[in-house]
Design a binder for these strands. Structure first.
Lengths: 224, 224
DNA sequence: ACTTCCTCTGAGCCTTTTCTGAGATCTCCG
DNA sequence: CGGAGATCTCAGAAAAGGCTCAGAGGAAGT
């Protein structure tokens, strides 16, 4: 997700406009770039199509409840870290929220500082300014858009090739469905086979084994 | 890390022996395997040499303070998720703990259920949702549609093969009638013998013993 | 304007999966 | 033991999914 060059991106789903506005301001001050949704439906759409480093989701939302939204995102393969905000602070609520797939659960009213600290904790792995990602035996240089082979040889990738490989490398061993790669790396209007073509380009440059096809499911790197 | 076939491993660093004992018991009941350390020095040693899926570290520790322990682990490249436990619950303490590298911060006294839920949330991040169902001595990886044999070998299943095995694995030891499998896994219009064929495919890939035939009734896995 | 590289499309070919059906084999029970 | 019905095995056709690549159009540099 976050590559160190751009601001970390946050999706904020909160129906209380006043609170949402305050949070957006707070996030902006801290150097985040945020998109806001005021109901679950809109949150789902943004969550599925946008690229975010972390999401803040209010539990009580119009149209589509926060936990339901979370469940749908998870069901569609979205693994972005999610912090759930809620006025419901009972033990069962907290446990239920976490088990629904939230990575953290913060009860309202909360202190801005704690929210920010928890966001930092959630984003840390991605934000940690990693300069390169492992890709099998090779490494992907995030600054130079190059793959460094074990022997030291460098292969330059084009923009799309790089975005695709980075997306795959961000979650090695995970299976990335074509549809998800297509919306994350390419424009929505592109043809169905664009991902295939770029996988083909990567394989031609880097060798057939870098990207594994999982028939009917998607692509994967770093498999055992 | 944790591969789904074995128990997740937890390092518990807590000087209060009574609490440590209770937690160890709680963790064992939940299916974790835990090592315990009662001071920071010992925790550092275990943390550096052992392989853990998650660590629980008390903030106030003899010999080496919890946050100092955490800092040293991080400095040595240990990226394991850490949950910090602390009696210090002030905002500044929580923020300080999280910013010291903790992935979560839970204030004492806490409820066992919440600790467990937060542990699950932490574990989930690295598991990348590597949920699996037991299939005899092997496991069915629900994300990758693969069967993981005890020795670690992975066998990929086609879509129908996977659906059939998952249906069987969802209720091990139950006898699944052909008709029910046929309607659950295949289209209604398929021929009568489609289930037999796919059972045959599974046996060919995984060995004759994975699926047992109960003559006249149906199929069954996980029998004694 | 020319060159070069990048992006995207789409068509044809190849591979895997799904399903059918038919013969071989097994199991149960009279 | 023998036969009816159940189950197993497997080859091959059809469909779905994936791969390869040539070429058109566009962007960026010279």
């Amino acid at each position: 997700m976050h590559d160190g060059a751009t601001k970390p991106r946050v999706l904020l789903v909160e129906d209380d406009r006043e609170l949402a506005g305050m949070l957006a301001e707070l996030l902006a001050d801290e150097g985040y770039e945020s998109d806001a949704a005021h109901d679950g439906q809109r949150g789902l759409h943004l969550g599925l199509t946008g690229r975010y480093d972390v999401m803040i989701i209010d539990r009580r939302l119009p149209v589509l409840d926060g936990l339901e939204l979370l469940a749908r995102l998870r069901a569609r393969g979205v693994t972005t870290r999610v912090l759930v905000l809620s006025a419901l602070g009972e033990l069962a609520d907290r446990v239920g929220g976490l088990d629904a797939g939230a990575d953290d659960y913060l009860v309202k009213p909360f202190e801005a500082e704690e929210l920010l600290a928890r966001l930092r904790a959630l984003g840390r792995r991605d934000l940690e300014g990693a300069e390169s990602l492992p890709v099998g035996a090779a490494a992907l240089d995030l600054q130079r858009h190059e793959v460094v082979l074990p022997r030291g040889e460098r292969i330059t990738l084009s923009g799309r090739e790089f975005e695709l490989l980075r997306t795959l490398a961000q979650r090695p061993k995970a299976i990335h469905p074509r549809a998800s790669l297509r919306t994350h790396v390419f424009a929505d209007s592109t043809g169905e086979s664009i991902v295939d073509t770029y996988v083909y380009y990567l394989r031609r440059k880097l060798g057939r084994d870098v990207v594994r096809t999982v028939h009917g499911l998607g692509y994967q790197i770093g498999a055992v």
